[in-house]
Amino acid sequence: MDTPLKRWICLGCGFSYDEALGLPEHGLAPGTRWKDIPEDWACPDCGTPKAMFEMVEIGYAAGGPELASAA
């Protein structure tokens, strides 16, 4: 229930999905958990399948979250 929100990185291009930010322009509301994204979803930048993303525990650089929300 209270597992921290995670980040996932595309191993094909480095695009990062942040559960906290979601991808509203692609229909994924902020807070959408990785496990709740359909398995046939693919990286919006390069088409790499969802299964080839890796969960990472890497913090943002200064200003990172703002840039990531605007992406």
Binding site: R7, G14, S16, V56, I58, G59, Y60, A61, G64, A68
Partner: peptide, 11 residues
């Protein structure tokens, strides 16, 4: 060589 960075969204 591709390396994971120590921070996301660096300049």
């Amino acid at each position: 060589l591709w390396v994971l960075p120590e921070q996301l969204y660096l300049p």
